[in-house]
């Protein structure tokens, strides 16, 4: 049995984007590292940098380009805490630095 993914979920190339959704393949100007994102705001993940294992780990936790995250405790130089796909996830500053987001 083969199931096809819906069009709206994939932020990567060759997919149909929803109306008004930012293009995450080319990095938006207002993209900032998650570690610098301040305030209790909602953000959209644009890109995940860093080594392959780190990217895979993030993807498994649901932190993927296109995912919406809600900041619970802004990071800065310390650990940040945010909600993604219904879970509360914490990251150290080095990891948060690798995730580029844009405010929603």
């Amino acid at each position: 049995m083969t199931k096809n993914p819906p069009k709206f979920s994939c932020p990567f190339a060759r997919r149909e984007q929803s109306e008004g959704e930012p293009d995450c393949v080319s990095l938006p100007e207002n993209a900032t590292p998650l570690s610098s994102a301040c305030g209790r705001k909602r953000f959209r993940v644009c890109r995940i940098k860093g080594n392959r294992r780190n990217c895979a780990r993030m993807a498994q936790m649901g932190v993927l380009p296109g995912s919406e995250i809600e900041m619970l405790c802004p990071g800065g130089r310390r650990q940040c805490m945010f909600r993604v796909k219904g879970s509360t996830v914490t990251l150290d500053p080095q990891c948060a630095e690798q995730i580029l987001v844009t405010p929603l």
Partner: peptide
């Protein structure tokens, strides 16, 4: 797309779930 295969695979799994 500046992504590794596992990220794209994960994204499609989440897409399947969301659908």
């Amino acid at each position: 797309v500046e992504a590794y295969p596992e990220a794209i695979i994960a994204d499609h799994r989440y897409g399947f779930i969301k659908s």
